[in-house]
């Protein structure tokens, strides 16, 4: 994996990311002029967006404005939609990951994804977590794999609840537990970026709070991009917020600034619930 990093700019190497403001200046992922088309219909217009490392970037905006579409660009999940075409550059570690020469399979092992609805494999809890490491050959031995499963589940805050029933089917977990399992599954392949598309929309407030705590915890290690419809959630978990409207990036900035002092009228209207 390291071999693909041919010309990583020094700014993104972990050592230089000492303090907060500096971290925000050096993006983990740099999107430039992204245009996305579904057939003839354009869903995203000229979006340029830097995504900083070790922080949470929230994407907000009314339904159908292209948040999910944009998020899927970041791990090339749009490739699986036949009519979808993505233009523009997405620079990660000095490489344009939107290039045909990049293997999306390799990319997805570094950019994990958590979906709106919990979607565990209909297998055991253990198999769910171990599947990624196994296909990527990350574990040398069975003990190694066990360790990885435990670590991932611990990081996802699920270990205590499931450690006695790792062989139980994943579908027997509650919705919130399943979503944390999906997060653990994403973590298990040791990604650098985690994309979350409305990860709490199917959960109750308690489960949501747990996931939010978890996101806050994960922020220390990963670059996280989250799509959410809840303004409170965006305000609680994110450091940066981008507001989309009709496929256009209307405004982006520090979360505090967006929520307290938006520059754009449309942003303010949306945040205060006047449309959307």
């Amino acid at each position: 994996m390291e071999s693909t990093v041919t010309s990583a700019p020094p700014a993104t190497s972990p050592g230089t990311q000492a303090n907060e403001p500096e971290r925000l200046t050096f993006p983990r992922i740099e999107c430039r002029d992204i245009n996305v088309f579904y057939g003839d219909k354009q869903a995203i217009f000229d979006i340029s967006l830097p995504i900083p490392d070790r922080s949470v970037t929230a994407l907000i905006g009314p339904s159908g404005c292209g948040k999910s579409t944009f998020l899927r660009c970041l791990n090339r999940m749009n490739d699986t939609i036949e009519s979808c075409r993505v233009e523009g550059q997405i620079i990660m570690d000095g490489e344009n990951i939107n290039d045909a020469a990049i293997d999306p399979v390799l990319l997805r092992s570094r950019v994990g994804m958590v979906f709106q609805k919990p979607n565990p494999f209909p297998k055991s809890i253990y198999d769910n977590i171990s599947y990624g490491p196994r296909i990527h050959g990350l574990a040398a031995s069975r003990e190694d794999l066990d360790g990885m499963v435990e670590k991932s589940l611990r990081r996802a805050g699920l270990w205590e609840e499931v450690k006695d029933r790792l062989t139980a089917p994943a579908n027997s977990l509650s919705g919130g537990q399943q979503q944390r399992l999906c997060i653990a599954r994403a973590i298990a392949v040791q990604p650098e970026v985690i994309l979350m598309d409305e990860p709490c929309s199917a959960l109750d407030p308690v489960a949501t709070a747990r996931i939010e705590e978890l996101i806050d915890e994960l922020r220390k290690r990963y670059c996280i991009v989250i799509v959410t419809h809840s303004m409170q959630q965006a305000a609680r978990v994110s450091q940066r917020t981008a507001f989309f409207h009709l496929g256009i990036l209307v405004e982006m900035g520090e979360t505090d600034q967006i929520f307290t002092n938006p520059r754009e009228r449309r942003t303010e209207d949306y945040i205060t619930g006047r449309f959307g």
Binding site: N75, T80, S109, V114, I135, A188, V189
Partner: peptide, 26 residues
């Protein structure tokens, strides 16, 4: 369900792997 395919692809399985490890058994 497509979500199973998405889940497999999401953890970096190839198309083949997602089909043969998950879709076909189901």
């Amino acid at each position: 369900p497509p979500s199973i395919r998405a889940a497999a692809l999401g953890v970096g399985a190839s198309k083949m792997q997602s089909v043969f490890h998950h879709v076909l058994p189901l």
